[in-house]
């Protein structure tokens, strides 16, 4: 920036300052909220700040002079609440076109918002990272993961008693025409572990006496629904039980074996 330009700019700033000082005076008499001495003080210091904030310019190149001069100009504007906020929050007079120009977002404000938005994104991303970090992953063979139950040809007979699979927490039951089921070991009533009672050929819960058929259907007792089951799929000829995918049993009323005990 040439010296001429700078002089011109400074003159312009000075003119603006005087104008806004006048406007401020007018506003001050109009509004009672602003105390008189405070505004007086601002008027006194505003010119002082021009020199004050320009002082570091001795160390920094010309660009800084402008940089520091800007806030000086703005300082005057600041003394007068800017129209957006003034009209929005404080009410009062209609904003003049001049006020509007001053209230427009400048580069720095815009960049700060952009920064805030980017930080918001980063926070979202951190939340996603934390979620993935904490969310447990199950290997095959631990409860919550997959269980390989052997080849299609090696399922137990359809009339065999249920086979307990303690690690996977399910009973392995082969049902005619349907294939094997993996029935979750926990009673649908209040979380007790029911047992297979071979004499009665059914599951019986020791806590409150709910009874279920070999296939998991509700027979009697306080349980609200048939037994829950895990998803069984056939992958490359091998049965895989996904202990992470549980299907809730159908309601007790819908059980075809209700009351048959």
């Amino acid at each position: 920036m040439s010296d001429d330009e700078r002089a011109q700019r400074l003159a312009e700033l000075k003119r603006k300052m005087q104008e806004s000082a006048k406007a401020k005076k007018a506003q001050q008499s109009a509004t009672e909220t602003v105390s008189k001495p405070a505004v007086e003080k601002v008027k006194d210091t505003s010119s002082a700040e021009v020199t004050a904030s320009a002082a570091p310019a001795t160390e920094t190149p010309a660009a800084v002079v402008v940089e520091t001069a800007k806030p000086a100009a703005a300082s005057v504007a600041a003394a007068e609440p800017s129209p957006v906020t003034a009209s929005a929050f404080k009410g009062g007079r209609e904003p003049t076109p001049d006020d509007r120009a001053k209230s427009q977002m400048n580069r720095r404000e815009f960049l700060t918002y952009a920064w805030g938005a980017a930080l918001g994104l980063a926070v979202l991303q951190t939340a996603a990272v934390s979620f993935f970090f904490m969310y447990p992953r199950f290997k095959a063979g631990e409860f919550g993961g997959a269980f390989f139950m052997g080849p299609e040809t090696a399922v137990p007979p359809t009339d065999a008693p249920p086979q307990n699979e303690p690690d996977g927490k399910f009973w392995w039951v082969n049902v005619e025409e349907e294939g094997p089921h993996a029935i979750y070991v926990v009673c649908t009533h209040l979380g007790c572990l029911y047992k297979w009672v071979d004499e009665n050929y059914r599951f019986e819960c020791p806590c409150h006496g709910s009874k279920f058929t070999r296939e998991g259907f509700y027979i009697e007792g306080p349980a609200p629904r048939s037994l829950d089951q895990f998803e069984v799929t056939l992958v490359d000829g091998t049965y895989v039980v996904d202990t992470g995918a549980k299907t809730l049993g159908s309601p007790a009323d819908e059980s075809p074996f209700k009351g048959t005990g």
């Binding site: 405070a38 601002v42 700040e49 703005a74 504007a77 600041a78 957006v84 929050f89 918002y113």
Partner: peptide
């Protein structure tokens, strides 16, 4: 006005207008 009041409480004394002036790099009021 209500929104501004809440904003001022959260920032412990800086109104929305003052906050914008801060972002714009304008000096504070007195």
């Amino acid at each position: 006005e209500g929104a501004d009041d809440i904003f001022t409480r959260i920032t412990a004394g800086i109104s929305a207008g003052e906050f914008r002036r801060m972002l714009r790099g304008e000096p504070p009021g007195r």
